[in-house]
């Protein structure tokens, strides 16, 4: 798997304001990247419920709330924490910041 991954430089840090998300288009994929103030987290930009754009959600601590039907997704683990007892998960991506530029391992 790791052969298929590489670090992709996306944008300077100020492109994602604190506690907001933005969609990043890499290949055919859409990844939502969030600025949590002290770190950036990235997940697939599709809510497991009905595909809502997670990047447009309100950040609540380490989670994001989907703007369509308020499903809550943990940005660290990709797990759905609301509704409870849901096994759906969104894919998470590693991020890093170098020289003021955010990269995603995708």
């Amino acid at each position: 798997m790791s052969d298929n991954k590489r670090w992709v430089r996306i944008a300077s840090c100020d492109a994602v304001p604190p506690r907001e998300g933005r969609a990043a288009m890499i290949d055919q994929r859409e990844i939502a990247i969030f600025n949590l103030g002290d770190r950036f987290l990235a997940v697939d930009n599709r809510c497991p419920h009905q595909g809502g754009p997670l990047c447009d959600g309100i950040v609540a601590g380490g989670s994001v709330v989907c703007p369509l039907h308020a499903w809550k997704v943990n940005l660290e683990t990709g797990e759905v924490s609301r509704p409870a007892n849901h096994n759906d998960c969104v894919r998470t991506y590693a991020t890093r910041v170098e020289g003021g530029v955010i990269s995603i391992e995708a």
Binding site: V8, I10, A24, M25, I33
Partner: peptide
């Protein structure tokens, strides 16, 4: 209010499709 208010981000360098 910020430059990415309405636009999605794209990689700074072109990305090779590894698949």
């Amino acid at each position: 209010v910020n430059r990415t208010q309405f636009i999605p981000l794209h990689p700074i360098e072109p990305v090779q499709d590894l698949t």
